[in-house]
Simulated assay, not measured.
Amino acid sequence: MTTQAPETKIVEKSKIACDGGEGALGHPRVWLHISEEDGYVECPYCDAKYVLKGREAA
């Protein structure tokens, strides 16, 4: 059995919400902040990676 890689999403705002995206099977909604220094943040529940638009190659 293989494990799927966490999803990477390109976003335009530095403050985003993540709820796992699977309705009742997701996780509690958390608000995440992408720092200018890093350009991305990972959800502590589902490991989804949110990358600021324009910072994809960083």
Rank of each mutant, 00 (worst) to 15 (best):
Val30Glu: 03
Gly26Tyr: 03
Tyr50Asn: 11
Ala57Gly: 10
Ile10Trp: 07
Gly20Trp: 09
Glu12Ala: 14
Val30Arg: 01
Val51Leu: 04
Thr3Tyr: 14
Arg55Asp: 12
Leu32Val: 04
Glu22Ser: 13
Val51Ala: 01
Gly39Asn: 05
Glu37Met: 10
Gly20Pro: 10
Gly23His: 02
His33Gln: 11
Ala24Asn: 08
Pro44Asn: 11
His33Thr: 14
Val30Tyr: 00
Tyr50Leu: 14
Tyr45His: 09
Gly21Glu: 10
Ala24Met: 11
Arg29Phe: 11
Gly21Thr: 07
His27Tyr: 11
Glu56Phe: 02
Gly39Cys: 09
His27Ile: 10
Gly23Glu: 02
Gly54Thr: 05
Ala24Gly: 11
Glu56Ser: 06
Pro6Gly: 00
Ala24Arg: 08
Leu32Tyr: 03
Tyr50Val: 11
Val41Thr: 14
Gly26Phe: 01
Thr8Leu: 04
Lys13Pro: 02
Glu37Ser: 12
Glu36Tyr: 00
Glu7Lys: 05
Glu36Trp: 00
Glu42Phe: 04
Lys49Ser: 03
Ala5Arg: 08
Ile34Ala: 03
Met1Thr: 11
Thr8Arg: 08
Met1Glu: 11
Ile34Glu: 02
Asp47Pro: 14
Pro44Arg: 06
Thr2His: 12
His27Pro: 13
Ile34Phe: 06
Val51Trp: 00
Glu56His: 05
Glu7Pro: 00
Cys18Ser: 07
Thr2Gly: 12
Lys53Gly: 01
Arg55Pro: 07
Met1Gly: 12
Glu7His: 02
Cys18Gly: 01
Pro44Thr: 12
Val41Pro: 04
Leu25Ile: 08
Tyr40Thr: 08
Arg29Ser: 12
Ile10Glu: 09
Thr2Asp: 10
Ala48Ser: 15
Val51His: 01
Cys18Phe: 01
Lys13Thr: 15
Pro6Asn: 00
Cys43Val: 06
Gln4Thr: 05
Lys9Glu: 15
Val41Cys: 02
Gly26Met: 05
Ile16Met: 06
Ala48Gln: 07
Asp19Met: 04
Tyr50Lys: 06
Ile16Cys: 01
Ser14Glu: 14
Ala58Glu: 15
Leu52Tyr: 00
Glu42Leu: 02
Pro6Lys: 00
Val11Thr: 01
Trp31His: 15
Glu12Pro: 02
Arg55Ser: 12
Asp38Tyr: 06
Lys53Phe: 04
Val51Asp: 00
Arg29Ala: 11
Cys43Asn: 03
Gly26Arg: 03
Lys49Cys: 12
Cys46Gln: 04
Val41Gly: 02
Lys49Gly: 08
Gln4His: 08
Gln4Asp: 09
Met1Asn: 15
Ile34Val: 09
Val11Trp: 01
Thr2Trp: 13
Lys15Tyr: 09
Pro28Val: 08
Met1His: 10
Lys53Cys: 03
Ile10Ser: 06
Glu37Arg: 13
Cys46Ile: 06
Ser35Asn: 04
Lys15Trp: 03
Met1Phe: 14
Glu37Asp: 13
Asp47Lys: 12
Asp19Gln: 05
Ile34Arg: 05
Val11Gly: 00
Val41Trp: 02
Glu22Cys: 13
Ser14Asn: 15
Ala58Ser: 15
Asp38Ile: 14
Val30Leu: 03
Thr2Leu: 09
Cys18Arg: 01
Ser14Gly: 01
Cys18Ala: 06
Asp38Lys: 12
Ala17Pro: 10
Ala24Ile: 10
Val11Ala: 00
Val41Phe: 05
Ile16Phe: 01
Cys46Pro: 11
Ile10Gln: 05
Lys53His: 09
Cys43Glu: 06
